[in-house]
């Protein structure tokens, strides 16, 4: 199966139940549903990097968490190397988890402050039971060297509070690499870092991906960073993928009004400011209700009756050019 994609995600959904405020409750109904990930499907080839961009709360981090098994989706399927992961035997899932590793957003939060770096880095190996105690130092040294913390023996016995944000993120990457995964998920790995340090982490990830022939899902809110890192870009909005395609196509010829606005803001803010009404309605749009209609319609400038109709067709991804899919009733 040389041509089969490494990972196929199909129609994954996750709904969170949010407890309503006392004032908003109706009789017998204390909760409302938040559609965090709604019908998300994509495929990832071997050695490919896919960028997922979107605003906060659009479901990109939930997607990442679903992929590493931290969140259980309500429905859908995830096929990794030809095997279905969801609802499968625990042993299959364990094997899958070895192959998929994640780097989280906030390096100040998720590294255990009581562990030494060498233990942090080797923990995945210990959990999976394929390391002897006397090999720990050697493996940790190799990995530290690999992520650019030189000389590695100086770092082995340090604690995380002795490191800067960029160094912590390198430790996290080293830990993720320990099991030699096939897929790395990077959930906004640079958003907590200073600008001058970001470039280092981005370049490190790029070279590691090439070197280990890994695939990567890179989650970010910055379209320029996604363009720098990824072969393909998926744009999410309110739990749905609204546009997905090759990097250059999404950036140079964006089709969905939301993507257009994102590119314009990043490319030419001055222009966006002066002709804003071409891109987005002014004022605040804050509705999380779910209907059959297009999720972007309340803030969209080119909406019409069709966007609000309850027909599922108005929100399905449609191929506008080869491998470039858009979910907008007006883009085809």
């Amino acid at each position: 199966m040389a041509d089969a994609p490494l990972l196929t995600v199909a129609k994954v959904r996750k709904t969170f139940r949010q407890k309503l405020r006392w004032s908003e409750r109706k009789l017998g109904d204390d909760y409302k549903n938040v559609f965090a990930v709604d019908d998300v499907s994509f495929a990832l080839e071997r050695g490919e990097t896919l960028g997922i961009i979107g605003e906060s709360g659009c479901g990109k981090s939930t997607t990442a968490r679903i992929l590493v098994g931290l969140v259980r989706p309500d429905s859908g399927s995830i096929i990794f190397q030809g095997k279905e992961i969801l609802g499968n035997r625990a042993s299959d899932v364990a094997a899958y988890r070895k192959e998929v590793q994640i780097v989280f957003q906030d390096p100040y939060e998720y590294l255990n402050p009581r562990m030494r770096l060498k233990d942090i880095i080797c923990e995945p190996l210990v959990i999976n039971g394929n390391i002897q105690d006397n090999r720990k130092t050697a493996i940790a040294e190799e990995l530290l060297d690999h992520v650019g913390l030189n000389p590695p023996n100086e770092y082995l016995n340090r604690f995380t509070h002795e490191l800067s944000g960029g160094q912590r993120q390198r430790v996290a990457i080293a830990r993720a690499l320990a099991l030699r995964p096939k897929l790395l998920i990077a959930d906004e790995p640079t958003s907590m870092l200073d600008v001058s340090v970001r470039a280092g982490i981005l370049n490190l990830l790029r070279s590691l991906i090439l070197e280990h022939r890994m695939s990567m899902i890179f989650i970010t809110h910055d379209i320029a960073t996604a363009g720098y890192m990824c072969d393909r870009i998926a744009v999410m909005y309110k739990g749905r993928i609204i546009e997905i395609g090759k990097r250059d196509e999404v950036i140079n010829t964006p089709q969905h009004p939301y993507t257009k606005a994102l590119v314009q803001v990043c490319d030419n803010l001055q222009g966006f400011i002066s002709e804003r009404e071409h891109y987005i309605l002014d004022g605040e749009v804050d509705s999380f209700e779910q209907g059959g209609h297009c999720c972007f319609a309340p803030g969209c400038v080119c909406r019409d009756g069709e966007c609000h109709c309850q027909d599922q067709g108005s929100q399905e991804l449609i191929e506008v050019s080869p491998e470039h899919f858009v979910a907008c009733a007006h883009c085809h």
């Binding site: 800067s164 600008v195 001058s196 340090v197 970001r198 470039a199 280092g200 982490i201 981005l202 370049n203 910055d222 379209i223 320029a224 960073t225 363009g227 720098y228 990097r247 950036i251 590119v263 990043c266 490319d267």
Partner: peptide, 23 residues
């Protein structure tokens, strides 16, 4: 200058960005 070359920009996605070494 270093700050400018460390930024990813939409025009320069094919250009390699450079971090500022040191602290």
């Amino acid at each position: 200058k270093a700050l400018l070359t460390s930024q990813v920009s939409l025009h320069g996605i094919h250009k390699i960005v450079k971090p500022i070494e040191g602290i």
